[in-house]
Simulated assay, not measured.
Amino acid sequence: MSSFDVDTLRGLPHREAAGRLLAGGWNVCGLGDWATVWRSPDGALVARVSPFEPAYGVFVELCRSLEGHPLLPRIEVDAPLAGGGRITVMEFLMPVQRAEAEAVVDRWSAAAPDDPITTVRRKAEQLDAEAARSVPFWGGLDHNPGNVLRNAVGEPKLVDLFYAAGLEIYRVLREDPARLAEAIPAERRRYICDIAALARMSDPDELAALRAAADSIG
C-alpha cells in the first residue's frame, strides 16, 4: 500500500483504517498518547492513526504552511477519520542523540533572525495563539528534546510541536461530561475513550467510568 492508497482511508473508523494498513503490510513502530504509528512496507513513510484528535491538525497546518522547510517533516497525506479521528502520513523519522536534540531546542528562543528555526518559531507562535482561541482544551506549544527526530540522511526535524490538554479533557469527561459535550461536538468525540494513553495506562474501573461518562453524552 503506497501513500496514494492511504488517502482511500479517509473517513473510515480508526480500527478499520488500522486494519487496512496491517493488511497492506504496514507495521506498528510507535505508540504515543493519542495515536498509533505505522511504518510502510518500504520503510519510507509512517502513518499516524488517532481515534480522537483535537490538536494535531495545527501541526499539519504548520508543516503545510512552511512546506519544504528543512526543519519540518514532509506530509504526504492528511485526512479525517470517522468520529473525530485523523490519519497523517509523513516521511519516516528516527531518534537523535540527546545532545543533538537539546542543541536544536536551545536554538528555539536564542536563534538569529536568519536561522531557519526562527521561521518555524514565529509561525508556530502565531498558530498557537489562534488555536488558543478556537480549539477546545488547547494545551499550547511543546518544543522539548523528545520532539526532535532526524530523517534518513541525518537532518533534524521538529515534530509534535503542539498539544491538547489531555489530562483536563479526561478530568472534565469524568467530572462534568455535559461541559465536555458542549465544548466538543459528538461527531468529533465518538472514539474519545480509544486513545492509546487510556488503553495503556487506565485500570479497568477507570476505563469503565470514562466510557460510561462518554456514553451519557452520546
Rank of each mutant, 00 (worst) to 15 (best):
A99G: 13
E102G: 01
I192L: 12
G25V: 05
C193Q: 07
R20G: 00
A101Q: 00
M201G: 06
E61G: 12
A103W: 05
R39W: 08
P145L: 08
A44C: 01
E100G: 12
F59K: 01
S202A: 15
L9I: 03
L167R: 15
E130M: 12
A131N: 10
A79F: 01
A165I: 08
A129V: 06
E53H: 10
M90S: 15
F4H: 13
V77W: 06
A79L: 11
P116C: 01
P51C: 09
A181M: 09
E130G: 14
G146S: 04
G139P: 05
D160W: 06
L31Q: 15
K123N: 00
K157S: 05
L127G: 02
L81W: 03
L180D: 05
C63V: 06
F52P: 08
A178H: 13
H69M: 03
L158S: 00
V77Y: 03
S3P: 08
A111Q: 03
R188F: 08
P136G: 09
E61R: 12
L9C: 02
A124N: 09
A181R: 11
G166C: 04
D205E: 15
M90F: 11
R121M: 06
E155C: 10
R74L: 12
G43M: 05
A152N: 01
D203A: 03
L158N: 07
L210Q: 10
G11Q: 00
R211T: 15
G11I: 01
R15K: 14
L12T: 11
N147L: 04
V58D: 06
E100C: 06
F137M: 10
G11R: 02
R64E: 13
H69V: 07
H143A: 14
R133L: 15
V96W: 07
E168P: 02
A103I: 07
V37Y: 04
Y56F: 14
P136S: 05
L93Y: 08
P70W: 00
N151C: 00
A17Q: 09
V96F: 04
L167T: 13
D78R: 02
A214C: 05
A55Q: 07
P51Q: 05
R39E: 14
R174P: 10
G166I: 05
K157A: 03
R190E: 14
T8R: 13
A209N: 14
S65N: 11
G85C: 09
G32F: 08
R121F: 01
